[in-house]
């Protein structure tokens, strides 16, 4: 096993499991649908709230996608092979998260313009929303991978993982929706986006190390 062959295999396996990707996407659409139904379908409510709604749905569907990311590897013994491969587990985690991110975020970006229309989000703000998702979701994935690694060996790990990880998502959601709101009010939003990018970079640097420690602890 080497890093290249691993990434290729991981990517291929994600492509083969199209249904999982589709499920994450459907979940995203479902959560968004709940807001007009549950709160208020009028444009007066939806247009200003659209950024927040989109981001809550994003955070939840990322969590759903990330939660089981090591489950199969744990069950079929692949994680054991990671540990004895002589490769850096940290780097393997990084590659895996990268593949996961691509497979979830790219389809998300494609459906986003349609959903934005349904939420009466002004077209001028759509760019900022997409940018905020591009810059912010890496943090969600990387932080989430720690929780996934910690709970992979537990039988009822999913709820625990939500409890552990969701509080850590708060800054990303705050700054992302802040940027969107600023854009809606035609104010400067680059600061918030820069902070988002910074959070993602920090998460990218630290999370794989933490996830690798967690994987080592989980596999025994």
């Amino acid at each position: 096993m080497n890093y290249r062959s691993y990434f290729k295999a991981e990517w291929l396996s994600l492509l083969r499991r199209k249904q999982d990707t589709l499920n994450a996407l459907l979940f995203f659409v479902m959560v968004i649908t709940l807001f007009p139904l549950g709160v208020d379908p009028s444009a007066d409510f939806l247009a200003p709230a659209a950024g927040g709604i989109i981001w809550c749905a994003t955070a939840l569907s990322v969590l759903m996608a990330v939660e089981g990311m090591y489950k199969e590897d744990y069950n079929d013994g692949s994680l054991e092979q990671w540990l004895v491969s002589g490769l850096s587990v940290t780097l393997l985690v990084f590659l895996k998260v990268l593949a996961q991110w691509l497979i979830v975020v790219v389809p998300l970006m494609i459906v986003l313009p349609i959903l934005a229309q349904m939420l009466f989000l002004p077209m001028s703000v759509l760019g900022v929303v997409m940018l905020s998702i591009l810059l912010g979701t890496p943090a969600l994935f990387f932080i989430g991978s720690i929780g996934a690694a910690l709970t992979v060996s537990l039988r009822r790990g999913a709820v625990l993982m939500l409890l552990l990880i969701l509080p850590l998502y708060i800054p990303v959601i705050v700054f992302a929706t802040g940027a969107i709101r600023a854009a809606q009010l035609e104010m400067a939003y680059s600061g918030q986006l820069a902070i988002l990018a910074a959070i993602s970079l920090v998460a990218l640097a630290l999370s794989p190390v933490m996830a690798a420690i967690s994987i080592r602890a989980s596999v025994n």
């Binding site: 910690l150 850590l168 800054p171 933490m210 967690s214 602890a217 025994n220």
Partner: peptide, 25 residues
Amino acid sequence: VFADKAVAVVSLVGVINLPIIKYSV
């Protein structure tokens, strides 16, 4: 052994995030 590692990771990650959360809020 696993529980010890897990709480250590969670506490450490939480502490790194705490100032960011505070600042963001």
